[in-house]
Simulated assay, not measured.
Amino acid sequence: MKWTSLLAIYILFWAFSVFLVLPWGVRTTHEAGGDFVAGQAESAPHEFRLGRLALRVTIVASVLFGLFVANYEFGWVTPQMLDLFNRDQVYNQM
């Protein structure tokens, strides 16, 4: 696989990992015992730490990407294994 393809796939893994990591360790202002700001939603996080979020996302994305590349190289799970409706047999009979 070309390095540009690998880079594009890693960026996709990173972007999707953001949504996996965002809820981890979030505490609302009420849970943290802080004071509410006028107009603040009750579910808003008390503190937003972009650096810590980026580090967590990078770690999760790297692990998932590593598993993806290992599966690509070693063929642990193939499309034929995921064919639940036996489409290959239907196409071969035609």
Score class of each variant (00 low, 15 high):
Lys2Gln: 11
Lys2Trp: 08
Trp3Tyr: 15
Trp3Thr: 15
Thr4Cys: 08
Ser5Pro: 04
Ser5Val: 13
Ser5Thr: 14
Leu6Asp: 10
Leu6Ile: 14
Leu7Trp: 03
Leu7Pro: 05
Leu7His: 04
Leu7Val: 05
Ala8Pro: 01
Tyr10Val: 09
Leu12Ile: 13
Leu12Val: 12
Leu12Asn: 10
Leu12Asp: 09
Phe13Leu: 03
Phe13Asn: 02
Trp14Asp: 15
Trp14Ala: 13
Trp14His: 14
Ala15Lys: 08
Phe16Pro: 15
Ser17Glu: 10
Ser17Thr: 12
Ser17Asn: 13
Ser17Gln: 11
Val18Ala: 10
Phe19Ser: 08
Leu20Met: 15
Val21Met: 04
Leu22Lys: 13
Leu22Arg: 15
Leu22Thr: 15
Pro23Thr: 01
Trp24Cys: 06
Trp24Leu: 12
Gly25Leu: 07
Gly25Asp: 09
Val26Ala: 02
Arg27Asn: 14
Arg27Met: 11
Thr28Gln: 02
Thr28His: 05
Thr29Arg: 05
His30Pro: 00
Glu31Gly: 07
Gly33Glu: 03
Gly34Ile: 07
Gly34Asn: 06
Asp35Thr: 08
Phe36Pro: 09
Val37Tyr: 10
Gly39Pro: 15
Ala41Val: 01
Ala41Met: 08
Ser43Pro: 00
Ser43Phe: 01
Ala44Ile: 07
His46Val: 04
Arg49Cys: 12
Leu50Cys: 11
Gly51Thr: 15
Gly51Phe: 12
Arg52Ser: 14
Ala54Met: 06
Ala54Asn: 03
Leu55Ala: 14
Val57Pro: 02
Val57Thr: 06
Val57Lys: 03
Val57Met: 01
Thr58Ser: 09
Val60Asp: 02
Ala61Ile: 07
Val63Glu: 04
Val63Phe: 08
Leu64Val: 05
Phe65Leu: 13
Phe65Val: 12
Leu67Ala: 09
Leu67Cys: 09
Leu67Gly: 09
Phe68Ile: 04
Phe68Ala: 13
Val69Thr: 09
Val69Trp: 09
Ala70Leu: 13
Ala70Ile: 08
Asn71Gly: 02
Asn71Ser: 04
Tyr72Ser: 06
Glu73Ala: 00
Gly75Ile: 07
Gly75Trp: 10
Thr78Phe: 05
Pro79Val: 04
Pro79Glu: 06
Pro79Phe: 07
Pro79His: 06
Gln80Lys: 11
Gln80Arg: 13
Leu82Tyr: 06
Leu82Met: 06
Leu82Arg: 03
Asp83His: 00
Leu84Gly: 04
Leu84Asn: 02
Asn86Thr: 01
Asn86Cys: 02
Arg87Asn: 03
Arg87Ile: 00
Asp88Cys: 00
Val90Arg: 02
Tyr91Asp: 03
Tyr91Phe: 00
Tyr91His: 01
Tyr91Ala: 04
Asn92Arg: 07
Met94Cys: 06
Met94Glu: 08
